[in-house]
Design a protein around this nucleic acid. Structure first.
Lengths: 233, 233
DNA sequence: TAAATTCGTTGATCTGAATCAAGGAAGGTC
DNA sequence: GACCTTCCTTGATTCAGATCAACGAATTTA
């Protein structure tokens, strides 16, 4: 790695909180890598050989069945961590949804560095606990919510998470944003088909809750209504 | 706590791996508590005041919506850890499915002890990563599997996890076991209704895949067939 | 042992989302 | 600009599982 002190995710990725000399060492272990949209970084079932920080871009974490059915189990953004530390195999695939830039580490190298740096493990623990909370929320969505509630929940979640991304100031929910997912992928996140996703979006648009200037961009017109429709706790 | 060295989960709970003197200190911070079937230990949305090790028994971790829809997001067994460390609120409820015995800690006390004991945080991290893997598996189930596949998957999972519980020797999948869940709870784990659960179980029984001597006990007659039906990767 | 209550099964019907089917719009290529 | 290809939308139909309804079996109470 050239210079971690210039890294744009320096203050929000797991390396934040390490001492300067520790960052220096960790930086030596990693390397920056660009991946392009559609490229798969980690394959489900393969030996877990790498972990990484997302510097920029959006990636999906997915699991699939032998007959091709696929479930997206996570979406990762700038400054998120990807890969399965302390495990022999990766239980999921990680694929770039946009062009992205990663800071990659060999898994075993990262594991031993982490074991020697409790502060890093602590950061990783907090992050993992948060991810688990999100996974639980999503289980509630997948197990119990209607199609409308699912779509509304996703739009609100994307508006928040895309808002958190980027510069450290100005972290608030966005009213207009570009979806990093196509319709099929939205379906794969929500446990719905592409047709149902399309119909639900069309209805929200017809009802004036959202605006869809083009395929990928969403503009929230009535956030309160969307919140009601999402059946949020 | 009286004496951690006699604890039956001593070697499998997160306290395993701590030095004897550390266990001693941690033991002073916790207290044993019996809870009876049906009792809720942690309430969703409440301040996260306690965490605990499960000494004995089975508990459910669940999230619910304002209109009462409930999703069980986890089932915890002997030697598992419950509660949300490093968080102000508990995102879920924890309720005993059987009479149980817990080793309870104040969350803030546990948090600070953990921060001073990297080995403990490491154990907790590994555990959380495993739970996250399981949550992801379950998202695939909830998002993409059919009712038959869900039931088959649950039965196999219970046969494995109940087999892991208890004495350290003899950890293998059980062919016969007592379900700690009633039909409604099975539905709440699988995102199905009680009627669908009942019909699916009846069909598996009629097909000779399982035997149901009484409401709560399941005996697997044809594990290979059940595995096929579960559509396991 | 009867009465009450809880829990589970089974049948009939309904419905939300899946599937099947056809176009249409946007973007890319020559 | 015409041609592809990919992605999205909309309509018609089907179907898996939900809902509604009734009953049966087990457990608890008196």
């Amino acid at each position: 790695m050239k210079d971690c002190t210039q890294c744009i995710v320096r203050n929000s990725a797991i390396c934040a909180g390490l001492e300067p000399d520790e960052v220096e060492v960790l930086g030596q272990l990693g390397r920056k890598q660009r991946v392009s949209k559609g490229q798969t970084v980690v394959w489900e079932g393969d030996d877990s050989v790498v972990v990484a920080n997302v510097i920029e871009g959006v990636l999906k974490v997915s699991m699939s069945m032998s007959d091709g059915r696929e479930q997206i189990v996570g979406i990762v953004f700038s400054s998120d961590f990807i890969g399965r530390p302390f495990g022999q195999q990766s239980p999921y695939s990680v694929t770039a949804l946009t062009d992205a830039e990663l800071c990659i580490f060999s898994r075993s190298t990262f594991d031993s560095f982490a074991r020697q740096h409790p502060e890093l493990e602590h950061k990783l623990l907090r992050r993992t606990l948060n991810e688990l909370d999100r996974a639980h929320e999503w289980m509630l969505l997948l197990g119990k919510k209607t199609a409308t509630e699912r779509i509304a929940t996703l739009l609100l979640e994307m508006s928040v998470r895309l808002g958190e991304t980027g510069c450290t100031e100005n972290k608030s929910a966005l009213d207009a944003f570009e979806l990093p997912l196509d319709r099929q992928q939205i379906g794969d996140v929500l446990g719905l088909t592409i047709e149902t996703v399309s119909r639900q979006l069309s209805r929200l648009k017809a009802d004036g809750v959202i605006h869809l200037p083009d395929r990928r961009t969403v503009s929230i017109r009535n956030r309160a209504r969307l919140q009601d429709l999402s059946a949020a706790a």
